[in-house]
Design a protein around this nucleic acid. Structure first.
Lengths: 342, 342
DNA sequence: TTGAAAGCGATACCAT
DNA sequence: ATGGTATCGCTTTCAA
């Protein structure tokens, strides 16, 4: 830290070696005799030496840090992802620098700047719902910084992607709603531009189609801010309720939207599931405690964080340019509870 | 980042100045002519120069980073705290390095090591429930690293503390339970050593005493792991249920314990609040959606993070040694809902 | 097997 | 007002 920090030079002086020798001894260089190594290492350990990571970074142009770009920390899904990332990063000697976009493209861009000035070794990215312009990210990537996408991914950059099986999850939930007797299933989802939005929508459409239920575009509602703003959720639900044929079920596409919709139905004293059934993507820890217990599709968030971090660190540390990128698709889990069973 | 990064030396060469001049011009030194400043700054901006923070860190022995020591990220309370910290840090040019102790003292100690090797400028600390030994933290502190405690604090180190008004919150909730007709109020709480534990307990005792209800030590149950392990919650509740006079109410002392207890009562088909009322500290986002809606004391977690970060950054950047430390006590909010009203 | 010296990028002291 | 040079701590090439 500050006071009690011994440097290589200190050791060198104390033992009458050169700093190069000390450096090499500590890194177990083959050119150093065992005897010297022992002396140096013993002294280092006794005096609680630890390399100054900042100096190492400057020299090596590696910071052993990973930048993290996501929407919001106080969000069950992302908090779990972070925990997964941290578990891997910790073991590999990396630390993570977290930035939140709050679903704002502009903030995301500024965060990217900050991260690049910090000279992070790589980036884990989940895009904001506003993001249209990938040029900054592309520039950084082509500048040699490895990137791994998770959750909200983009094909504009050729790299690894880690996502949940959104299509399958959405498909299974929608199918469940249909089999539960619902026919007018609305879908409330995030910004249209996001990968998760189109994938979840695809699963929804697939299930409807399979059961010969026509897809009604008016039943698909987008929340441009991904549900960060409660009002946008309330507005679209109100629109649905005002329709001539209001939906008999809601399939909600994210943590915030699911909880927000559920809360709004509560507030409006709409009986769940009798009047409207509901189920959606949600990583809330205890949906079974809700009133009624809430049907959810759970994403393997911790796992997603772990996988993304592993892939990124591998990219960072690989000697040769990786060209064979993979899209990891992690399975989701459907938990059917009372909120969706008519 | 890597490729497109211009250095001061590059600018100096391009403009035929010395690097000292360029450095001074960029930092607006009074010794540099306006003309030169303009030339240098224009060139810097045009070529997208940004100082290499690693080099600055090495030189200045300041990393513009803050270490964060807490139990667990995927926990509503801490996630909100992190968000608060981030909001302040971001604006002040600091980044935060997050480490999780998972309530383990040993892991906490290793995290401290890692953070100190990273030469963080300061530390925001919420102790793990196991932590007895403060010597490492003390050493770091006396080594000159500013520390601010939040939530789970300790008086072993003289510094700022930011906490919720635990006594008052616990007092009001307990009082509410009493007024709601409960007489045998059990208290399920974290590890006995934690500051939050003794404070919340104090509020609980205060309310009981005020109503001439004897304090029954058997009604106070500790979870050494702070409820990280579901089993420890189940065990103590089962003990309570097995008593000759089982409690008619539970006052639970943390996010995890509150949710865990509620879930266990559910599982055991115990009617809430008729058989047992329940209420507790909890920063869950939607306790009103629970079945029944859950009475909670909410801590101003975001605010706590902000305040702690502000205090820490002030400490870091203050020239003179601070001696006048304060304990910020932030108000809590009691939300009475159905789970506690007999 | 070991040492001297250069260099990573920015800064500050000492000259001029 | 500007330039030369040493320094932060560590690594690495080149010499010996």
């Amino acid at each position: 830290m500050k006071i009690e920090s011994i440097t290589i030079t200190d050791i060198a002086k104390a033992l009458n070696f050169s700093s190069s020798t000390v450096s090499r001894a500590l890194r177990d260089s083959y050119q150093i005799s065992e005897a010297t190594k022992r002396i140096v290492k013993d002294y280092a350990k006794k005096n609680n030496y630890h390399p100054n990571l900042v100096a190492q970074s400057l020299k090596s142009n590696k910071s052993k840090s990973i930048g993290l770009l996501l929407c919001s920390v106080p969000n069950n899904f992302f908090a779990e992802v972070i925990s997964g990332i941290e578990s891997i990063a910790y073991n590999s000697g990396y630390h993570i620098i977290i930035t939140q976009s709050h679903e704002s493209q502009e903030r995301e861009a500024r965060n990217l700047d900050h991260l690049s000035w910090r000279s992070v070794d790589g980036l884990l990215v989940s895009l904001s719902s506003e993001t249209m312009d990938m040029s900054k990210l592309q520039k950084i990537h082509s500048g040699g910084v490895p990137i791994v996408f998770f959750d909200r991914v983009s094909d504009c950059i050729k790299t690894h992607q880690v996502v949940a099986d959104n299509i399958e999850g959405a498909y299974r939930l929608t199918k469940h709603l249909i089999e539960s007797g619902c026919r007018n299933i609305a879908h409330i989802t995030s910004s249209p531009g996001l990968s998760i939005t189109s994938e979840r929508r695809e699963g929804y459409v697939k299930a409807l189609t399979e059961y010969n239920i026509p897809v009604n575009e008016n039943y698909i509602k987008y929340c441009p801010h991904g549900g960060m703003i409660m009002e946008e959720i309330e507005v679209v639900i109100q629109e649905l309720l005002n329709m001539k044929q209001p939906p008999d079920a809601l399939f909600t596409a994210s943590d915030r939207i699911t909880i927000g919709s559920f809360a709004f139905l509560h507030k409006k004293n709409i009986r769940i599931p009798e009047q409207i059934a509901i189920g959606g993507f949600c990583n809330f820890s205890s949906p079974e405690l809700f009133n009624p217990s809430l049907t959810t599709i759970r994403q393997p968030a911790f796992e997603m964080g772990k996988t993304a971090a592993e892939l990124l660190i591998a990219l960072i540390e690989s000697k040769r340019q990786e060209t064979n990128f993979e899209k990891k698709i992690l399975p989701t889990e459907l938990f059917v509870r009372k909120s969706s069973v008519k």
